[in-house]
Design a protein around this nucleic acid. Structure first.
Lengths: 220, 220
DNA sequence: TTATATTTTTAGATTTGTCTAAATTTTATT
DNA sequence: AATAAAATTTAGACAAATCTAAAAATATAA
């Protein structure tokens, strides 16, 4: 089964939303897709006809197994291309998203497989997000939110969820990138801000907003 | 100015046709695009409105300077991606065309420029076709048809025009590829076939049909 | 040079993905 | 539970790119 660019964009978007909430509703998908609720309804009918969606009028919807596999194929391509753009073409990681949005719709399966090999079969993209394999298997990493990390223990940044230029600027300021080692020294309950020590730097304070988007892991 | 995928495909196709014939006519473009004459007429109006085309009803048409530049941008992208697919992803050269047909429509200019640098700013694609630079300048090569090459002089294969799987198979059989050195020993007027000697191999005979699609160059 | 054939264009329909506005269903509130 | 608010769907329209069938222009040939 093959899909149009528009179908793939909807499928991918539904996938991401249902990861958070289980069942997805029309308005939130419309907001995420920057379109109108009526357009979403039209597409839902189409995807249901193609047997990718569990959907009943007014009752919300989610991808079935076939839909999830289709979504993971797109996610895989997106993340592999992002990896390529950053690792091979030296793009800054905040510039690659929109280009990968186009590249993810190139259809050749052989292309994806060869790209994967060329890149050394990476498990995580430049934002730290896991890259599904060709069967849709997602590598797991034992990560948690920086705000939930234990105090006074060295943790490693494994993923950053907000990929805006503003967030990147912020992280550059703090010298935080994927792989950076951080120790959380203290958590302020007042505003959720954290006092942290970045490897080889003085202790500093980051806001709850920043912390929420940074994920870390530690060994054992 | 930016273009839809369909517009780009028409522009590129008109460019190739007018290289051969100067003025292009509706039916030949329809045949090349595998569509109907009526669809071509529709698109011609659109491209004329966008000031890319010299076109008068019933009188044929050709790209103006803006149209040619647009075409060369697409050709450039196509050939850079073909180079990438063959040199980096190890595709056989007869498999890359259809994938490059998709990749050529990715819009980011920065992507193309970085890809160009990553590939080492190649001048020719894997078929030996010249890759226009970002200003639309096409590298020239002093090449001629193998059938017109002087006898008993070592020449180098620079380009192969027929890119079908059948042709590739044929050339593999003769151990001919881009860069292969060949000496034409004799030309048979009866059927236009050539006796040639491929570097490090015994002399053999190739048909006029094969020879017609092979282009070569030699120094001075 | 008139008739015929070919080429090209127009007119109107179709599909995909989108939209607005109105109608319907569900949810929340008094 | 009745009513107001919010969410969702339907109905009908539109733009892009295509199509078929018919009309118009051009080219060819008797």
């Amino acid at each position: 089964m093959s899909f149009t660019t528009s179908e793939e964009n909807y499928i991918k978007c539904i996938y991401h939303l249902q990861q958070e909430s289980g069942l997805v509703n029309t308005n939130s998908l419309a907001a995420e897709m920057q379109t109108r609720a009526a357009s979403v309804t039209d597409m839902l009918k189409k995807l249901k006809t193609k047997k990718l969606l569990q959907y009943e009028k007014y009752k919300g919807f989610k991808l079935n197994e076939a839909g999830k596999k289709a979504a993971l194929d797109v996610v895989r391509k997106h993340r592999l291309w992002e990896f390529f753009l950053v690792e091979k073409l030296q793009f800054d990681w905040d510039k690659v998203h929109s280009i990968a949005e186009e590249l993810e719709h190139i259809s050749s399966e052989e292309l994806v497989q060869r790209l994967d090999n060329f890149l050394g079969n990476p498990s995580f993209d430049p934002h730290g997000d896991p890259i599904p394999d060709k069967n849709g298997i997602i590598p797991v990493i034992n990560q948690q939110n920086l705000g939930d990390a234990p105090l006074n223990k060295i943790v490693t940044v494994s993923s950053v969820t907000n990929q805006s230029a503003e967030m990147l600027e912020m992280l550059k300021h703090y010298n935080i990138a994927l792989g950076t080692q951080i120790t959380v020294l203290r958590k302020f309950d007042f505003d959720g801000s954290l006092e942290i020590k970045v490897w080889k730097q003085k202790a500093c304070i980051i806001s709850e907003q920043v912390a929420k988007n940074v994920f870390v892991h530690y060994d054992q």
